[in-house]
Design a protein around this nucleic acid. Structure first.
Length: 291
DNA sequence: GTTGAGCGA
């Protein structure tokens, strides 16, 4: 079941301006008067879709009328779900990134953090992503205080904590509408304690252009069951791969083995070059001499 | 192209 694109949802720009300078000088943001985006009061009636396979959905519209709240989701076109367009490589279902458990303590947490947003994804687009749930309280995207440029992350508040948790479980890792990007969601205010389980990461270079997170992950997972995930680094603006990525292991022994065993092995068409990951988060392999 | 990335007021 996928939701139909609705008017009021921002559509991607006709093209991503490949040669644009890093500060998007030619694309000034609309700059609404206020950045808080609150939907009209609605009843929670439309159930959230079990999954979103909007991977290859074409851009439906060119208009972006998000200066006002979109209509309530009184109708949701469910019924015909296209088959999963990906998963052609290894047959295993794509594993969404592990989601941290709900933060303990006050059960008032009803806000999700959302990241990895593109510059054109404004409040209207984000609201439209979850409009079918009918449970969005507000959407707030963070902008640069001086330039007003979107910072690529924001917060989505839901009417209840349960609604937020449902969305987190249902949407995280699935494809966002009209783009080939997965949702990246987490509990808000989980900033200081979102990394409790150590992971062991390796650097993988020399990746071919068609290697995705999933391909990279499964390349290793078939040999090392402790693989927790993989990330192919892409340019934020052009979405093109930079030819390298990272694979996270849960088992340091498998990490060490993979460093030698998988070096030079083929990934989709090219031999990989494996090296140690320069972890910024002090996970797994620590720098020697420190305590 | 060769070491990502994620918390507001």
């Amino acid at each position: 079941m996928m939701q139909q694109p609705q008017p009021g949802v921002a559509a991607p720009p006709p093209q991503a301006v490949p040669g644009a300078p890093p500060h998007w000088g030619g694309v000034p943001p609309p700059m609404p008067a206020q950045h808080q985006y609150a939907p009209p009061p609605t009843q929670q009636q439309a159930p959230p879709p079990p999954q979103m396979w909007g991977h290859q959905a074409p851009p439906p519209t060119h208009q972006a009328a998000y200066g006002q709240a979109p209509p309530p989701p009184h109708q949701a076109a469910y019924g015909q779900a296209p088959p999963p367009p990906q998963a052609g490589y290894y047959g295993a279902p794509p594993a969404p990134a592990p989601v941290a458990p709900a933060p303990v303590g006050p059960s008032e947490v009803r806000t999700l953090w959302i990241g990895d947003l593109q510059y054109w994804m404004d409040e209207g687009y984000i609201y439209g992503c979850f409009a079918a749930t009918g449970e969005v309280q507000s959407v707030k995207l963070i902008r640069d205080k001086h330039t007003g440029q979107l910072q690529g992350y924001g917060f989505v508040e839901f009417v209840t904590r349960a609604a937020a948790e449902r969305v987190l479980q249902t949407y995280n890792g699935t494809m966002m509408p009209n783009v080939e990007l997965p949702f990246r969601l987490n509990w808000a205010t989980a900033g200081e304690k979102r990394d409790d389980s150590p992971d062991y990461t390796i650097f993988v270079g020399d990746l071919a252009a068609d290697v995705t997170d999933y391909v990279l992950q499964e390349t290793f997972r078939v040999h090392y069951p402790s693989v927790k995930g993989a990330k192919v680094v892409t340019d934020k603006l052009t979405m093109r791969t930079k030819g390298y990525g990272f694979v996270k292991f849960g088992d340091p022994n498998e990490q060490a083995r993979a460093m030698t065993e998988m070096n030079g092995m083929l990934c989709s068409s090219r031999p990989m070059r494996i090296g140690p990951a320069a972890n910024k988060k002090a996970t797994g392999v620590q720098e020697k001499g420190e305590e």
